[in-house]
Computed example of a mutant assay.
Amino acid sequence: MSKVGYARVSTHDQSLTLQLEALKQAGCIKIFSDTASGSDANRRGFLDLKYYLRSGDTLVVTRIDRIARSVLDLQQLVAYLKEQEIELTATEQPISTSSAAGKAFLDMLGVFAEFELNIRKERQLEGIAAAKAAGKYKGRKPIPVDTQQEILAMHREHNPVSEIARLCKVSRNTVYKIIREQP
């Protein structure tokens, strides 16, 4: 029956410090953290957290969007925690899975977090489209034709893809793409 914290930031440019301090002040005896996208299901800290939690524990986060990025993700997590008899609470939001009102508020916050994420994605796509229209976004430079021919020749000689990539100074994915797109 202990409080266990979880903190997450999306990029290395962001700091976990404020979240870690808030979780310590909330009385967490152990805190797990990640620097990764919330949509990444293989976050090491999150996986370690799930392994560490025991029946009767309380999982503490600062905000619900630190642990789940979609309504489905949040609902699955809440169902898992309920099954394990683990309570979820947030320091900056009046939620707790121990009451019906807290659960309802949790679901609403999940909807808003997903909405915010979708709006951000839309804005990013609009920005890219505008940059392309203005001729400022051109993508990567194409692989020179002679390099493509060299890759195809080495492939026909049954050289391993890793070796082709290393010798031609391109990624393995580029080698696969050139092979796949050959006429």
Rank of each mutant, 00 (worst) to 15 (best):
G135E: 15
G135N: 14
G135T: 12
G135P: 14
K136Q: 14
K136T: 12
Y137A: 15
Y137N: 13
K138G: 14
K138V: 10
G139W: 12
G139S: 12
G139H: 11
G139K: 13
G139F: 06
R140N: 13
K141W: 01
K141D: 14
P142Q: 11
P142D: 07
I143A: 05
I143L: 09
I143H: 04
I143N: 01
P144W: 02
V145I: 09
V145P: 12
V145A: 13
D146S: 10
D146T: 01
D146V: 02
T147F: 03
T147I: 11
T147Q: 07
T147W: 04
Q149R: 06
Q149H: 07
Q149M: 08
E150H: 11
I151V: 10
I151A: 03
L152F: 10
L152I: 12
L152D: 12
A153K: 06
M154W: 07
M154N: 08
M154C: 05
H155Q: 12
H155G: 06
H155Y: 14
R156E: 04
R156P: 01
R156G: 05
E157N: 14
E157I: 09
E157V: 12
E157R: 15
E157H: 13
E157Q: 14
H158W: 02
H158V: 02
N159R: 00
N159P: 01
P160I: 04
P160S: 10
P160H: 03
S162P: 01
S162H: 07
S162L: 10
E163P: 02
E163G: 06
I164D: 02
I164W: 06
A165Q: 05
A165L: 08
R166N: 09
R166M: 09
L167G: 03
L167P: 02
C168H: 03
C168Q: 06
C168Y: 04
K169L: 05
K169I: 04
K169E: 09
K169F: 04
V170Q: 04
S171Q: 07
R172C: 07
R172L: 08
R172D: 08
R172G: 05
N173Y: 10
V175P: 00
V175Q: 00
V175R: 00
Y176N: 13
Y176S: 09
Y176D: 11
K177M: 07
K177R: 15
I179W: 00
E181N: 15
E181Y: 03
Q182N: 11
